[in-house]
Each structure stands twice: as structure tokens, then as C-alpha cells.
Design a binder for these strands. Structure first.
Lengths: 139, 139
DNA sequence: CTTGCACCTGTAGCTGCTACAGGTTTTATT
DNA sequence: AATAAAACCTGTAGCAGCTACAGGTGCAAG
């Protein structure tokens, strides 16, 4: 039970386990300055506090919602500086929602196209495949 | 009217224009061997024929349908070798269709989550933002 | 006091492009 | 025939968002 070192802070493995974010990814976040540099133990190991843990959780959830690291970064910078209005965050969310809906619409078009394509030949003929022909535009 | 050089073949700019694939991308496709090396003019410029043009079109349309270059590569290799069955292509398409549907389902979950998030605060309060709180998990 | 795990740094790889820099070839204009 | 401008060439580096090493330390337990 190495992980907790509770007086000093949380080791990277522990916050990885708790947030579900890969250790390598956490170090990557630090490098690109989405996560702050944590303090270190005498031996040089990263020691995180609760607030850093929360921040990582925030990033994780935001990523799962499809926000880019850049967007998350902007958001966090706003939050950090206290210069953020709730309505700004709201707008960002709505904007992102629009993107997501757009993506869905695209994928549904794609779905229809693929369905049609597949329907054209479910019977496995030999080498004059309608799918290939359609894609090749030779028809 | 440089582009056609019709006896020799089509210049890269011309097939780019006709297929809508970026010139840099065409050269990239050649490098990663999705497109074959075309013959060259005396001065070293790439000269394409109709079949290469069609192949590029195929790649373009397949990419638009969300197939990865690897998948397209596999497909083309099969087609090239004549060892392809229509049913194999069909299966590949159906498999891809499944992926697309999965992606759609994910995005719809995401859409719901974002909608809820946005609904929580449309009124722009100041600094205790429910979105941020939700994401931060501090609530 | 050694085993063994968790940590460290730094670098390279992945996908699918795009964007240079710095040079040549071809075409068009003078 | 000279020159300007467009289109081509090669090679390399960059983008997102990680992941995967290699090769080395820290640290606790047996």
C-alpha cells in the first residue's frame, strides 16, 4: 500500500486509479500545461492534492463529453482567473452541443449511405461487386 | 492550360482538381503506398492515367464514408489481387456500418448530457456555475 | 540486502493530413 | 530569347491526443 502517502499527497498511480486517467496521459497533461506541476517528494515523485485530483476529474469528464483539450484549457483558465461568467460557460456548452448534433447528422447520412451500399449486394457474387463499382464510380 | 498534357497523362494538379483531393494529400497517399507510384515526365513530374484517377476517387469516397486508410488499403489490395469476394466487401461494409451506429449512439448520449448541463443554468449567474460544479464533481 | 513494483525522464510512434522551405520545370509574356 | 510566374518537386516538421517504449531511480517488504 504505497499509494496514498497521505500527509504528503497522492502519488500519480493513485490519482490515475481514482480518475481512470492513464499515468502517461497525466504526465502528458502536465507537459502541455493543462495540469499544473505538482510538488515533488524528496525522491522526486509527484505529489498531488485534492484540488489537483478534482481538476483531473474535470478534464476527464470534459474529454468524455468531447471537449478538446484546448477548450478545456480555456475553460480552466477562465475558472482559475475567476473571470468566468456562468453564461460564458453556458454558451461554450451550447456551442459544443451544436457541434455534437452536427456530427450526429453527418454520421446518420453516412449510415444511410452504408446501408444502401450493403443492401445492394448481400448475396455474395464474385468479382463484379456493386459496392466497389459504386465507390469506383465506374458504373 | 497546362494541366492535361493528354498524351502523357494527367498532372497532379489536374487529378487534385478533379477528385477534390489536396495535392499534398495525394503525394502522402503515394508515400504510404495507398496510391501507386505514377510514371514521370522527363522533368520528373507525376503523370497519372485514368485508372489511377479512379482509384483516387475511390479513396476519396471511402474516406468520406469514414473508412480508415488501412481499411481502404486492405480493400484495394483485395481488389488488386482479384482475390476479393463480393461478400467479403459486403461484410466489411456491414462491420463499418456497425461502428458508425455505435458512434452515433455514443454521440446521442453525449448530446443528452450536454443538453442537461446547459439546461441547468441558462440564466447567467456569477461564479457558482452548475456546469463547472457538475464537471468538477464538487457538488 | 535484494527483489520487485511504482515511479522517473526523454524520445519516438500512431492517424491523416497540412504546411512550410527551398529548389526545378514548364508555360506564358514580353 | 529572356524573364516572370505558375505549377511542380523533395524533404521535413507540425497538428491532436495520446501511447509505448528504453533505461534509469525510489521505496517498502521479505
Amino acid at each position: 500500500m504505497t499509494q496514498i502517502t497521505s500527509e504528503q499527497g497522492l502519488l500519480i498511480g493513485e490519482i490515475s486509479r481514482r480518475t481512470g486517467v492513464n499515468i502517461e496521459t497525466i504526465r502528458y497533461y502536465e507537459r502541455i500545461e493543462v495540469m499544473p506541476k505538482p510538488k515533488r517528494s524528496e525522491g522526486g515523485q509527484r505529489l498531488y492534492n485534492e484540488s489537483q485530483l478534482n481538476r483531473l476529474g474535470f478534464i476527464k469528464r470534459s474529454r468524455e463529453l468531447g471537449f478538446s483539450l484546448k477548450e478545456i484549457c480555456n475553460l480552466l483558465t477562465l475558472v482559475d482567473s475567476g473571470e468566468m461568467t456562468c453564461s460564458e460557460v453556458h454558451d461554450l456548452t451550447v456551442e459544443h452541443l451544436r457541434d455534437v448534433r452536427h456530427k450526429i447528422a453527418d454520421l446518420r447520412k453516412l449510415e444511410r449511405a452504408l446501408k444502401n451500399l450493403a443492401a445492394q449486394c448481400s448475396l455474395g457474387d464474385v468479382s463484379d461487386c456493386p459496392i466497389v463499382e459504386t465507390l469506383y464510380g465506374l458504373s
